[in-house]
Structure formats: structure tokens, C-alpha cells
Design a protein around this nucleic acid. Structure first.
Lengths: 210, 210
DNA sequence: CCACAACCTGACCAACCGGTCAACAAATTT
DNA sequence: AAATTTGTTGACCGGTTGGTCAGGTTGTGG
């Protein structure tokens, strides 16, 4: 118990404050969009005076950019399960599972990302053109390999990826609509399982991998 | 050529101005979100002084509400092809075709709708609870009928509907991301056809209807 | 314990926003 | 063609926003 972590009091509070601000910002940006969000509201939700926000993040854009970057990191990590899979059933199946879980656990982040892209990706255009493009071509090649090996039907890999993104993110981005159609109640554990199974089954069956 | 339409000059300009304002508003709301949109920008894009906007639409909310309602109408009409179909291949196939075409022709409207729902549907919550809920339960029953008749596999109808919405709308809402991954170019005629075919094939095959 | 750096914050400001209004122009009715 | 309704607009306003800053507090290294 002597040295749990080597952190001065300064570094500790700095980390905690930054984390609180980022968490509050993610929620506010998700609920109101970039234009509708206010630094004051983020400050209140983080329990800090507004001026303190500007000490850690100079501008609203800088704070927003950090939020979007954090989300992008999470998404990229979700793709780890894709690689090293022997075939589409394992790879795509695990990817669906991972992304559905993200939609469930981080719906705010997903909404911020969706909002950013929908508005023309004003702050993360470079990420789309570099990291995301590389990621996409890499997975496309992997899918094409599975096709060549006869493990699934010949499907356009890019459109398949779009379909994976669309279906999984839908449960976060349109969660409110789904809840409303569900009688105003959040999806239960059983319903989430049914959602995952439906998506998994239709897609894997749809590409001839089952 | 005597009496093409019975419209006084007043009614004519009124219609044209309202149409121009609504078109400009749809574009601005789609690009900036409700909070980020400004009446001044909408006015400039419509080629009218800002005060004139407030003559036709008292408040920003009222204008926004009209835009969202217009989109909702278009979407409901797209469902006409769903009914009176003998089976899922025709019904769902035609619905995918119709919704993909909407994503292509009215991407701004789709984005406004997505943004509205993502932010908790503050102005069209009642539509979700009435019209959309009725629509959904009706189509769910139709799908269930097809299942009972052995025309497709036993899939949860609601999750299938979510999948249809997600995949088709994705091409509008995330059009910018798709374009970026496409080398910054809009999807060509051929690529749109490939997109439609991919979605149609995977889903219809995925539910055991092909 | 001291000097310096990092951190905190109430008060403030210029810019911008949605919305108003009075004065005016144009169409329609009588 | 006068009277009336409908449409048009520049100028304006209170309120809010992102951002600043001076002055104070707290932690840290020597």
C-alpha cells in the first residue's frame, strides 16, 4: 500500500478535473449538439466554474475536438477483435458484439461522433482521410480474403462495413426512438440480447457465412 | 393559356417564399443542427431579409418544426410500397429501394430527422408516440404474417425494421464519411446501384427470403 | 519557510442571437 | 381611386454566449 501510483496532488487533481470536464462535455455535446451546447452548462455539470474550463481547454472547439478524439480511440480499439479471426463468423460476429456493446455503454460518444460526421466532419476530417481510410482498406482486404477462401459470399466489403456500422450505431444514435417504440422503457437485458442476435444472425446469414 | 392555375399574385409569392425558406432552412438545419443554425443564415440562403422570415414563421422553433414535419411526411409515403406486397422479397425489397432513393435525393432532410431524434426528439416526440408507433406495429404484424406463412425465417420484426432504417439512412446521414472513404467523390450511379444491391441482398438473404 | 509556478474564479466584455416594431410598399377589395 | 388588408424591411433591443483577466489561493521544489 506504500506507493499505489506516483502522482503529485497537482497531477491528480488535474487528471480528475480534465476527466470530469470531458465526461460532462460528452454528455452535453451529445444532447445539444456542438452549436446548442454551452460552456456554462458543461461547467455546471462538471461542478466547476466556467472560467476553470477555459483554463484546461482554451476554446469550445478544443474541448469538442478532445471529446471526438476520445470516442474515435474507443472505436478503433473495438476493431481489435476483427483481426486474427479465422473467418467471418468469428471476426464479424465479435465485431458486432463489440460495437453493440459500445452503443450500449457509450451512447453519448456515439451520438457526438454521428453529429460530427453528419455536419461534414469539420474538426476530424483529417482523421477520416488518414486513420479511418487506412482502417477501412485493411478490413476490406481481410473480408476479400475470406471471400476468396470461400468462407462467405462475394459481397462488396465496403458496403458490408457500412452496414455493420449503421446497424450497430443505430442502437445508440436512435436509442431514443427505439425506447419510445418500446413503450418509453430502456431495452432490457433480454431485449439487448435479442437485438444482438438479430443483427448477428441476419448479417452473418446474409453474407453466406452461416 | 388563359387560366393555368387560379392563384392571385399574393398567394403565388407567399407559396414561393415559404418554399424557399423551408428549403434553405432544411439545408442549414442539416449542416449546423438546430442550435448551430441561425435565422440570419437561413435568410441569406433564401435571399430574403431576416425580418421577412419572422413574418412567415414566427419563431425558429416553428420553422424547424415545419421542416421536420415535411420530412416525416416523405418517410411515411415511402412505406406505401411495403403494403399490398405478396411477400418479403417484394415488400422489403421495394422498401429498401424507396428508402435508399430518399437517402440519395433528400440527404438533408434525413440528417435533420436524425439530429432531431438523437437529441431526444424535443419537438416531434408526439409523432414518435402516435404515428410512428402505429406504423411500426402495423408493419411488424405484416412481417409476422409473412413469417407464419413460411415466407421468411422467424426474425424479430422490430429489430428487422430498425435494421432497414439504419442501413438505408446511413447512406444519407453518414454520406460525408462514405464520400471521404470514396476518395472525396460522391457515389456514382454504379456505386449507388451496388449499395442498393448489397443492402437488398444481405438483408433478404439474411432473413431467409431468397 | 520562502519563492516561484501552477491553479482557481468572480467579474467583466464584445459579439452575436432570436425576436420586435414602426414605417412603408404593394396588392386587393369596394 | 380610396380604403383596407397583406407583405416588406432597416433599425433596434434584451439576453446569452464564448472568452478574458486581474487578483487571489494552493502546491512544490529548493
Amino acid at each position: 500500500m506504500a506507493e499505489p501510483i506516483r502522482l503529485s496532488k497537482r497531477d491528480a487533481t488535474r487528471r480528475e478535473n480534465e476527466a470530469r470536464i470531458l465526461a460532462a462535455a460528452e454528455k452535453v455535446f451529445a444532447e445539444a449538439g456542438f452549436g446548442g451546447a454551452t460552456m456554462q452548462l458543461i461547467a455546471d455539470m462538471a461542478g466547476l466554474p466556467k472560467a476553470n474550463l477555459h483554463y484546461y481547454f482554451a476554446t469550445k472547439e478544443e474541448l469538442y475536438r478532445k471529446v471526438v478524439q476520445n470516442i474515435f480511440e474507443i472505436w478503433l480499439h473495438a476493431a481489435d477483435v476483427f483481426d486474427n479471426a479465422p473467418g467471418p463468423v468469428e471476426g464479424i460476429g465479435a465485431y458486432i458484439e463489440a460495437k453493440m456493446e459500445i452503443s450500449r455503454r457509450h451512447p453519448e460518444g456515439s451520438k457526438v461522433w454521428a453529429s460530427e460526421v453528419m455536419h461534414g466532419a469539420p474538426v476530424i476530417q483529417d482523421y477520416l482521410e488518414t486513420t479511418l481510410r487506412d482502417w477501412t482498406t485493411g478490413r476490406s482486404r481481410l473480408i476479400q480474403k475470406w471471400i476468396d477462401e470461400g468462407k462467405m459470399d462475394p459481397i462488396d466489403p465496403e458496403h458490408l462495413l457500412y452496414m455493420l456500422w449503421a446497424t450497430t450505431q443505430h442502437y445508440a444514435d436512435f436509442g431514443h426512438q427505439i425506447e419510445t417504440l418500446n413503450g418509453g422503457r430502456k431495452l432490457s437485458e433480454k431485449q439487448w440480447k435479442a437485438a444482438k442476435d438479430s443483427v448477428r444472425r441476419i448479417i452473418l446469414h446474409g453474407i453466406g457465412a452461416l
